[in-house]
């Protein structure tokens, strides 16, 4: 501890080149894996996606025989097993928000930006690391929920196999939706910088906006509802589009809808990046 015993030596000449994305990606990965909130939100996502999917399919299987013909028409076993994606969207949003807002909440952002003053680079690397983690986790979870759900349905109800038309798209697509919504939440957090504020905004845009929409004329609702993230996500996680036809208003095809989601996330991240560049840290 004595200063004299540990010589720091005079400052050395600078190494060639300059800092860059590789080091920053490593750093962001370390940051992400070394706080507990990451693990807890991922556990919560497992419970949401796989847990709720299992409960939903188990309940359906148990009640199938006593159910009426109305319940059986248009039954989408894939969508049923992905019922937890709805809540999963909220939980992955929490992770997306926390990864960004915790930097501001704890002041770590000052250490981060002192090491790497290129702010767009910091945000891009953070988003990239988050995207990889969220994508891998989401795909494992949606496929897990699908296979578990179908196993629970089998024998009691019609069930889906991954090779049937639209099924692989629905399962993989649901994972992509989760990933992109997480990025959207992260962009909001870069804009808002406070955990509570960013979470409220995210949940508001996801859940409350469709409710507010109900105050408007039905014709307007039909024009706008298809752009809601929640509707896009639900549509992606289904193989049978008719079930989720909102009052006859044409929905976007799953991939077009997904394109809109990506655009929302991109806008949030770009605005967040511009603000980050311009504002005091």
């Amino acid at each position: 501890m004595s200063v004299e015993t540990v010589s720091l030596g005079p400052a050395r000449p600078l190494p060639p080149g300059h800092y860059g994305p590789l080091g920053q990606l490593r750093s962001e990965w370390t940051k992400m894996r070394t706080v507990r909130s990451t693990l807890w939100t991922l556990v919560a996502t497992i419970i949401a996606v796989v847990g709720i999917g299992a409960v939903a399919t188990a309940v359906t299987a148990a009640r199938w025989r006593s159910g009426g013909i109305v319940d059986h028409i248009g039954f989408d076993p894939t969508a049923r097993s992905l019922a937890g994606v709805f809540l999963g969207q909220i939980v992955i949003g929490v992770l997306g928000v926390l990864v960004m807002s915790a930097e501001y909440g704890t002041g770590t952002i000052r250490a981060t930006l002192s090491a790497v003053p290129n702010r767009p680079l910091v945000l891009a690397c953070k988003a990239a690391v988050f995207a990889v983690v969220a994508f891998v986790a989401s795909e494992i979870l949606t496929f897990g929920a699908f296979f578990l759900g179908q196993a629970l349905l089998r024998g009691s109800t019609p069930y889906a196999t991954i090779t049937q038309p639209g099924v692989a798209r629905a399962v993989a697509g649901a994972g992509l939706v989760l990933t992109v919504l997480g990025l959207f939440a992260m962009g909001l957090a870069a804009i808002i910088r406070h955990t509570a504020g960013a979470l409220t905004t995210y949940v508001g845009l996801l859940l409350v906006l469709p409710l507010i929409l109900q105050a408007f004329p039905v014709s307007f609702q039909h024009q706008v509802i298809k752009f809601m993230p929640l509707v896009i996500g639900e549509h992606m996680a289904a193989t049978n589009p008719h079930v989720h036809d909102f009052g006859g208003g044409a929905l976007l095809s799953p991939w077009i809808g997904f394109g809109f989601l990506c655009a929302y996330a991109a806008v949030a991240l770009v605005v967040g990046g511009i603000l980050m560049y311009r504002r005091d840290a």
Binding site: S27, T30, T34, V35, S37, T106, G107, T108, I109, A111
Partner: peptide, 14 residues
């Protein structure tokens, strides 16, 4: 400028 949930080593390591 330190996350309270991160260890001293990991703060420096990142």
């Amino acid at each position: 400028a330190i996350h309270p949930g991160r260890t001293a080593f990991n703060h420096l390591w990142m």
